[in-house]
């Protein structure tokens, strides 16, 4: 439990904060898209480490509400799919879609879409992680 509260949970919050800040900054200055692309894998790693740690805690007998904790964990992983969603607007992605109305985004628009998604996902991931923390803290 100490590793989770002392290392993993703060790590997730820091990654969320950085992701939100860089996401909002990229909305204003799309040239920061490259930095956002570098931070996105860190969000995957943080959410993954959190998932593994919480599952390990639940399996080792902590008396938490398993359904709720696992539900929030699944949500935290599902949120990651929205990171970098601008890739769906690239010409290559649109070319493979039979829908003729599918929008093809310019690099500037892709940067802005990724930035908005990063800010939204960062806030949602932080809230979900906080809920998992509360569940585990109450049970400990």
């Amino acid at each position: 439990m100490g590793i989770y509260t002392g290392v993993v949970y703060p790590l997730v919050l820091v990654v969320c904060a950085v992701l939100a800040i860089v996401g909002l900054a990229t909305l204003a200055w799309p040239r920061l898209h490259r930095a956002l692309k570098l931070i996105t894998p860190a969000a995957f790693v943080a959410a993954g480490v959190q998932a593994v740690t919480v599952v390990a805690l639940l399996l080792t007998g902590i008396d938490a509400d398993m359904i709720l904790a696992l539900g929030y964990l699944i949500a935290s992983v599902a949120l990651l799919a929205l990171l970098g969603i601008g890739r769906l607007g690239t010409p290559e992605a649109a070319a493979g879609d039979p829908d003729p109305n599918r929008p093809v985004l310019s690099p500037l628009q892709i940067a802005r879409v990724d930035a908005a998604a990063a800010a939204i996902v960062a806030i949602a991931l932080a809230v979900v992680s906080w809920r998992v923390y509360v569940i585990l803290e109450t049970a400990a």
Binding site: L82, I85, G86, G89, P103, L105, Q109, R112, V113, A116, A117, I120, V121
Partner: peptide, 11 residues
């Protein structure tokens, strides 16, 4: 605007 639309979809 596609950026606004996709941001709404994500939200």
């Amino acid at each position: 605007n596609p950026v606004a639309r996709i941001s709404l979809i994500v939200a």
